[in-house]
Write a protein that binds this DNA or RNA. Sequence first.
DNA 1: ATAATACTTGACCGATTTGGTCAACGGAGG
DNA 2: CCTCCGTTGACCAAATCGGTCAAGTATTAT
Lengths: 206, 206
Amino acid sequence: MKEKFFALPKQKQNAIINAGYRVFSQNSYKKSPMSEIAGEAGISKSLLFHYFHNKQELYLFLWDNCAKLTIKYLTEYKCYEQTDLFEMMYRGMKAKMRIMNQYPNMGSFVIKAFYERDPEISLAIQNSYKSYKAFKSDNILASIDTTQFAEGIDVKMMYREMTLASEGYLWEMQRKGAVDVEKMEKDFTEMLNFWKKLYLRKEGEK
Amino acid sequence: MKEKFFALPKQKQNAIINAGYRVFSQNSYKKSPMSEIAGEAGISKSLLFHYFHNKQELYLFLWDNCAKLTIKYLTEYKCYEQTDLFEMMYRGMKAKMRIMNQYPNMGSFVIKAFYERDPEISLAIQNSYKSYKAFKSDNILASIDTTQFAEGIDVKMMYREMTLASEGYLWEMQRKGAVDVEKMEKDFTEMLNFWKKLYLRKEGEK
DNA sequence: ATAATACTTGACCGATTTGGTCAACGGAGG
DNA sequence: CCTCCGTTGACCAAATCGGTCAAGTATTAT
């Protein structure tokens, strides 16, 4: 029955998808009512069941959509092809913001889904997560040019620090609700500049 | 009826409290079943109702407990009486870890409670939050000695950066479940040292 | 040993919610 | 007029929820 869903105008599709992410990210799988999703998407429950056989199918579709989109945008923004660490982080952030803008609750959904214990879905989640993880290289720092940093900098700590702060920032924004991409872009650029000034080898230095 | 609860051995009290934090932090107020809390605490639902008249009373008790504990430990660790920024952050982290160790899900509970919209409780939440916020001074940096930092450092950015990274770290730990205080203490000390090396005025400098 | 007291529970109730179905409505096109 | 097709409200059986209560089981007092 899912062809019916794909035949919908993109806007309506996204309304449904976002309603799903919102509800599933705030309640456990079992306690997320289809009626609430339908209502939030502006359609009747019956119609929702017309697009997806049952709750499980909707949930797993949403889950698949996460992996697909993430991979798509990370690739599109070429953030794993960079040798400049700051450029890589900037592109990664751009990709994440791009997704957050379209699907504000996808991030929370992913985390909740990962820890979902309901036997009806947990197996599928865990399996498909493996294939996603295979995409991300485990040692991101390997391809980075480390000669650009000032002497005496613990590169690993620096990277970890920046990652944590970025995540903390994203989380703070998400929590506050309204995702304002422009502000986020500005804030993050500011942070990047702060880091560059701090970590980059000064001009004229050795 | 709450005297009955306080008469319990501390261990049993904490089992109930933690069960409450866990369930309420993972579901909305309305969809958090008393039966699940009771079961997780290792007592029967009837007994839970023997300690707390109804769900609302339990919920608001848990909420109150958050504010009380937070204020208690922040005061006890004297983290707002410091002039050294790193010492202040260290003490703040210690206080938070102290709480996380005893009530691993309190943090998530607070956030969820703050955004709870159920009319049965949201009013009480918002009101009591105001009194808590009055405790935290709004300009933490005011009492900090800024002469200790290297020249050219944007102190505000630096502080924001450190705060975000700390929060990101705490969140990561929380998400991974098992809260290992020793490891957290070690990790955070490492981060602090990294920051000190980075931000503190070098010896002999002006 | 017995009675009074406190602790704890399973069974139960009425109200509500849930996933899912289905007959029917309404509009577009032939 | 008929026939699709997107859409819906009404409906159902099953499950769940907050809360109660009588009864069971320790514990203590006498």
